[in-house]
Structure formats: structure tokens, C-alpha cells
Design a protein around this nucleic acid. Structure first.
Length: 594
RNA sequence: GCGCCGGUAGCUCAGCUGGAUAGAGCACCGGAUUUCUAAUCCGGCGGUCGUGGGUUCGAGUCCCGCCCGGCGCGCCA
């Protein structure tokens, strides 16, 4: 389906050129239906430059505007707004052309992939393997996955990189602890099971703090690990594999797939880029690469410490080791040079903003990323407890993500039971539906908030049946499916040449929403804002409720004549397919019955 | 101290590169409706957009000051 927004922008732009007022047509979907469906706000800004009155310029543009085929006559309002209302016949034509469901393939609703595909790397999730995943990882995983899905749908090649923490001093401690606790692991590394990584870590840490001999042992283990000692490596790998299994239990439930590529993957590359950096150092004007207190540093403009001194980005510690700046630089060279990325997105919490500013500036300056590569930190806000403080357990520890998901599913089951009036759900169906609803609720709630703002984790709110929540959206979908079943029409089965006839205000309003899906999606792919998609889907669902309302809407199954019934059934079907596709891009499953 | 993020209705949150009387959900009040899944629809109540200036035809949005909250600021990630 063509983007209405683009079409209108083109038309208005053409008219503007004709009257000698070239510029951005500033076409937007109107906020209020009384101003039409779209509006152009270009006349007000341009009038002054051209020495004209805004309303006069608007009138000139309108006079030159050729939109009879798609819009009602344009209206000029207020200081010079040009209001545009789509003709029902045009809406009907656009929707009629949407192909029926392709056999087996992904339903694209007729939306074409981009003409300019890119290779995009998304750095998401990236938990530390030393510990259990906690709430802090939810947002990166869920937002990152959504962004990947949207970009993939748009036709880009997406690499989902799970940059897990599997390297560093704490792994010496963990391996040493593991060897003491389960010495037979050397012979059976594949059989390692650690029920609770969190308590395993705590036990190791306690031993480390209390036992000097163990502390020394841990340090030796780190050295052995870094030197590549086979046995140490084997134990380390067994630990990482077990930890990754824990992670993937979560990823499976969240329906997130990604490529695990830990920091350890980059160890050789880190050595190599230090070499490249040292070569640059010789010619670095102003000595922006230099050693300071024994550490190799980048001194980049605009970064200072709390004392106002230049703040270095350390790429090699004074002990010769590397840190996260080094590994982040290494990932950039890998992603650019090996994966061929032209856009790299980091879905990492907002507190790390300064770190990424430095890494990006450093990568550019040292030549690891050229102007043809976009580097973007997609920072996100924190998940707070219901009372608005950082999400912690009573003991001050972090909340395990698994526990949170379990609770959501459990609550979803309770909600389903409550609503299941006629007891139509079997035990197994209820459990399966609860899993989908519960997980979906957590994801939807997260995605429905603006990426950069903090939000309060409110399980009652996310499972509410009213408002902009997953259960509401899922129900809206299931309800439409039920209409299809009752009408005896299969999904997407009505032929694409069955004309869509729009007459009733609620039909037209629904059609406008449906038609706006593609442009909404394109906007999201550009701005990477999942909450815009949830907002859109919610409005679509509401538009459908009005359309289907017995008082203010229209009849569907028993509508006559046949052509009107079919048209309305197609509207139902298109709505359901849009909801399913949209929720799918959020990473949320739908159910046929609820 | 410097920097970043935030402060919008009683509560939870939107507000797209400045655009029309600032929106939604919940809560509260009223109405429809014995239902093509009411897990619905319609209406009402409710905000000096932290605060004081400035820029602009137009500011929740941009600039400056101040207040409040959160976070970050050299070898953890």
C-alpha cells in the first residue's frame, strides 16, 4: 500500500513549487478529525519569507493543488492551515487493493520493502553471564527485538548481537569457585547445572572476600584464562554455556532470537586494534592519544572530569588489560569490517550515554567508523517499582527477570479464569493462553512507554482489560477473529478485488486508520520509537470498536446487501491482520480465542 | 562543581523535526445497551504543561536563569 502521507506531501509540494513557494510541505495527520485527515502547515512559515499573508499564500497553494482524485476540496483554516480530507472512494480503492493473505508467507498487507536496504547491527540484551538476568535486561531485550523486527520488515539486513559479559576478573573467581565446588566438572563439562546463578555468584564472592588463599587462586585463574590454559578455558566455557542456557530460557519465553557473541570473542581483535591505535598515536596531532598514569587513553574534546580536567577514555589499563571502551571499539571494527554494517544501534540504558558518546567520537577520530556508518545509542529509562524507586528486592538485590515473567503469567491465568464465563477453556488451553497474555502484557507495557522515560512496573496495570494494554489488544484481535468464524469467512480469504465500500462515518474513520499503518511503520523505522506503534494499534482497535458498536456503528455479519457485508467483512479482516502484524512487530503473539 | 535525563489532569502516561480550544487510559459522575464476544459505545468532571524571563505570526516543544527529583563524571560493565 502506498503511503498516503507521502502522496499528499508530493501533491502539496508540487502545488507549492507552482506558486513559487518551494519548501517542506509539512503535511501531518491531523490531531482532530474536525480539521480533516491531514493538514499542511507550510503556508504560515513561508509566507513571511515571501512577503505574503499566510492565508493568501495558503489560498494560492490550494488553487494550484491537484488532489480531486483523492481528497475533498481543501479548506483553509485559522492562520493558514490547509486541511485535507480523504475521499472515501480513494480510501476504498487503497484498501481494496491490499492483497489477500499470501500462502504460508508473512502477511505484509501489501507494504513494499525499502528501496534502500541497509545492513544494520543492533546491540541488544547483553547480560553479564556471571549473574542471572534481571529486570534491567528486560528493556534492552524487548525494545531491541522490536526494533530488529521493524527494520527487518522494512527490508534491512539485521544482525542481532548479544554482547554478553563473559570476560573479566570476576570469571576467574567464578571458575575457581566452580572447581572447588564441583571438581568433577573437569571430566564432564557438559553436565554442569547451576540451579541459581545468583546464589552461586554470591557464594563465590563471599568466599573471595573471606578467604585470602581463594582470592589468590582466583587471580591466578584469571591469568590462566587469559593465557588460554585449556583446562581453565574448558571450565570457563562450561560455566558460560550454562549461564547462556538460563538466558535462552528467558529469550525463548520472550520469543527473542539473537546471536550470542561475548566479549571474549573480541580478545584477539582488541590486541589488534590497540596496535592500530598505537600507529595513529605517532601522528596524533595534539597528542590526543597518549599514555596517562600508565594507561593508554583517548583525550576527546568536550569531556571533562568532575574537577574540570580532561576526561580520558581508557583503551588499555595500566596493568595492560582492556576494559569496556576497548571492547566496544573492537565491536565497531568487527561490525563495520566483517558484518558490513552501515548503521549500528546500541540498545543500552541511558546512564551509559556519556560512555557511548566517547566511544563513538573515539571510533570516528581514530578511523574505525567513517561517515558512511551511523552510530546511535538508543538509550532507555529505568524500570522502577510501583512506588517509583529503583526496582530492588527488599534485601536490596535485583529482581530476577524470570520471577517477574512467572508472576505476570500467573496473574494472566487468574484474569482469564475470571473472564472465562462459560468455562470454555481446558486446563491446557488456559495455560497456553496465559503464557501468551502474561508475557505479551509485560512486553507491551514496556514498549508502550516512551523509550527514554522511566516507568513504573505495575502488574495490575499491564494486565488490565481496559486501556492501552496487551490484553485489550489481544482481545480486540480475538473478537474480530470470532466474527470471521461466525460469518464463515477464513482469514484473508475474501478476494482482494472484492470492493471496499465506505459510507458510514465509523467505516470511514476505520479506513483512515487502516490506511495509515504503512506510514506509521515507516516513521517508526526511522525514529525507532516502539511506543508510536502501540499508540497506533490502540487507536486502530478503538476505531474498530466504534465501527462494530451496535449503537453507533454498523452491522456486519447480517449486513445487506451481500456487497456491503463483504466489504465490512474485509474491513474486519484487514483490521485483524493489521493488529496481528503490528503486534508481531512488537514481538507479541496473538490468540484466536480469549 | 560539571554533564545528562526528567518534572504535563487525583493516579499512570502520550504529545511526532514549534502549529489550531494540551490528549489517552484509570478513577469518579451520568447515559446507551438484555450484546454480530459489554473485556463495548456515547457524554461529563478534571491541567496557570515545576518556575521566571526571552525568541516567534504561533512555545508543553527552542534559548537563558532558578527550584525539585534521578543518574553519570580515570583504569567495573
Amino acid at each position: 500500500m502506498k503511503s498516503v502521507l507521502e502522496e499528499l506531501s508530493r501533491r502539496v509540494r508540487t502545488a507549492m513549487v507552482k506558486v513559487g513557494a518551494d519548501g517542506d510541505p509539512i503535511v501531518r495527520a491531523s490531531q482532530d478529525a474536525k480539521f480533516g485527515d491531514y493538514q499542511s502547515n507550510a503556508a504560515m512559515g513561508l509566507a513571511k519569507k515571501l512577503g505574503k499573508k499566510p492565508r493568501d499564500l495558503a489560498a494560492e497553494i490550494v488553487a494550484a493543488l491537484e488532489i480531486d482524485d483523492i481528497c475533498e476540496p481543501a479548506e483553509i483554516a485559522g492562520p493558514g492551515f490547509i486541511n485535507l480530507t480523504l475521499k472515501p472512494s480513494y480510501l476504498g480503492k487503497l484498501l481494496t487493493g491490499v492483497p489477500s493473505v499470501a500462502d504460508g508467507g508473512l502477511d505484509r498487507l501489501g507494504i513494499e520493502p525499502t528501496a534502500d536496504p541497509q545492513v544494520v547491527v543492533v546491540d541488544l540484551s547483553s547480560p553479564n553471564l556471571a549473574k542471572e538476568m534481571h529486570v534491567g535486561h528486560l528493556r534492552s531485550t524487548v525494545i531491541g527485538d522490536c526494533i530488529c523486527r521493524v527494520l527487518e520488515f522494512e527490508g534491512h539486513t539485521v544482525h542481532r548481537e548479544n554482547h554478553v559479559g563473559d570476560w573479566g576478573t570476576q570469571f576467574g573467581m567464578l571458575v575457581a569457585h566452580l572447581l572447588r565446588e564441583k571438581p568433577d566438572i573437569i571430566d564432564h563439562p557438559d553436565e554442569l547445572v547451576i540451579a541459581d546463578l545468583e546464589s552461586f555468584y554470591v557464594a563465590a564472592k563471599n568466599r573471595f572476600d573471606a578467604d585470602e588463599a581463594f582470592k589468590a587462586e582466583s587471580r591466578e585463574t584469571v591469568v590462566k584464562l587469559q593465557q588460554g590454559d585449556p583446562t581453565t578455558r574448558k571450565i570457563w566455557k562450561a560455566f558460560c554455556d550454562e549461564s547462556l542456557r538460563h538466558c535462552h530460557d528467558i529469550y525463548d519465553r520472550l520469543q527473542v532470537r539473537l546471536t550470542d557473541r561475548g566479549e571474549s570473542y573480541y580478545t584477539d581483535r582488541m590486541e589488534e586494534i590497540i596496535g592500530r591505535i598505537e600507529k595513529k598515536m605517532v601522528g596524533a596531532d595534539g597528542g590526543w592519544i597518549r599514555e596517562s598514569d600508565g594507561a593508554l587513553c583517548f583525550f576527546l574534546d568536550g569531556f571533562t572530569t568532575r574537577d574540570g580536567e580532561p576526561l580520558p577514555m581508557i583503551v588499555r589499563k595500566s596493568d595492560g588489560g582492556f576494559n569496556y571502551a576497548t571492547s566496544d571499539l573492537a565491536t565497531i571494527t568487527h561490525r563495520v569490517e566483517e558484518l558490513g554494517a552501515t548503521r549500528i544501534l546500541y540498545v543500552v540504558g541511558l546512564p551509559q550515554k556519556q560512555h557511548f558518546e566517547m566511544v563513538f567520537a573515539g571510533a570516528r577520530k581514530v578511523g574505525f567508523a567513517g561517515d558512511d556508518v551511523a552510530l546511535e545509542h538508543l538509550g532507555f529509562g529505568s524500570v522502577l517499582s510501583k512506588s517509583g524507586v529503583m526496582f530492588k528486592t527488599r534485601e536490596g538485590g535485583t529482581f530476577k527477570l524470570k520471577a517477574l515473567l512467572d508472576e505476570a503469567v500467573e496473574r494472566a491465568l487468574a484474569v482469564l479464569r475470571e473472564q472465562d464465563r462459560d468455562g470454555g477453556f481446558s486446563e491446557a488451553q488456559a495455560a497456553k493462553t496465559a503464557e501468551i497474555v502474561g508475557i505479551g502484557a509485560v512486553k507491551y507495557f514496556d514498549l508502550a512507554h516512551a523509550r527514554q522515560s522511566d516507568y513504573k512496573f505495575d502488574i495490575d496495570h499491564m494486565l488490565a482489560m481496559e486501556g492501552n494494554t496487551a490484553p485489550y489488544m489481544m482481545y480486540a484481535y480475538a473478537r474480530i477473529r470470532s466474527i470471521g468464524r461466525k460469518a464463515g469467512v477464513a482469514v484473508g480469504a475474501l478476494p482482494a478485488d472484492e470492493p471496499i465500500l465506505l459510507e458510514h462515518p465509523t467505516e470511514i474513520a476505520l479506513a483512515v486508520k487502516l490506511v495509515q499503518f504503512s506510514e506509521t511503520l515507516h516513521g517508526i523505522a526511522r525514529e525507532l520509537r516502539p511506543n508510536v506503534l502501540t499508540e497506533y494499534l490502540y487507536e486502530l482497535a478503538k476505531a474498530f470498536s466504534r465501527f462494530y458498536d451496535k449503537k453507533n456503528g454498523v452491522r456486519v455479519i447480517d449486513a445487506t446487501p451481500e456487497s456491503v457485508r463483504n466489504s465490512r467483512l474485509r474491513l474486519c479482516d484487514l483490521t485483524a491482520r493489521t493488529l496481528k502484524l503490528g503486534l508481531g512487530l512488537l514481538g507479541i503473539e496473538t490468540v484466536e480465542r480469549m
